[in-house]
């Protein structure tokens, strides 16, 4: 696992694609907050997507475009938020945080498997 600084650098790589500086700054802030959630979160910078993976199936991906970025929260039935303003940023960070906390709870306290016959 990379140190915190290394993960943040990896996360920020794809942000250069975003043209408006205020939107690029929101992308940067979101990446920093996701990395800071836990040391166990891994960051991968694919060519057009930045992925954050944590324990308990936590998964958030960010796809930067010229004027905005798209945040996808969750893996199986992802919820997507377009971010080009502070309001979108708050929604994306809020949903990502809730997803992370839910995943962490399930990881620490897995549901009972039930009886098998």
């Amino acid at each position: 696992m990379e140190p915190v600084d290394g993960r943040t650098r990896t996360a920020l790589k794809n942000g250069a694609r975003i043209l408006p500086p205020e939107v690029r700054d929101l992308y940067r802030r979101l990446c920093i907050q996701l990395v800071a959630l836990s040391r166990s979160i891994k960051v991968e910078a694919a060519p057009f997507e930045t992925r954050f993976q944590g324990p308990g199936n936590m998964y958030v991906s960010i796809s930067p475009y010229r004027e905005k970025f798209l945040v996808s929260v969750g893996r199986e039935t992802p919820c997507q938020i377009r971010v080009s303003s502070r309001e979108g940023f708050f929604r994306a960070l809020d949903m990502s945080l809730e997803h992370y906390l839910s995943a962490r709870s399930k990881y620490l306290h897995p549901p009972d498997r039930g009886i098998k016959f």
């Binding site: 802030r29 907050q33 959630l37 502070r86 940023f89 708050f90 929604r91 960070l93 945080l97």
Partner: peptide
């Protein structure tokens, strides 16, 4: 500075409890 903060558990709106983060 780390999330969540108490505003999350007091069910504040995202712009409310995340404002200091930004």
């Amino acid at each position: 500075k780390s999330l969540p903060n108490i505003g999350y558990y007091f069910a504040l709106a995202p712009s409310g409890y995340l404002g200091p983060v930004v």
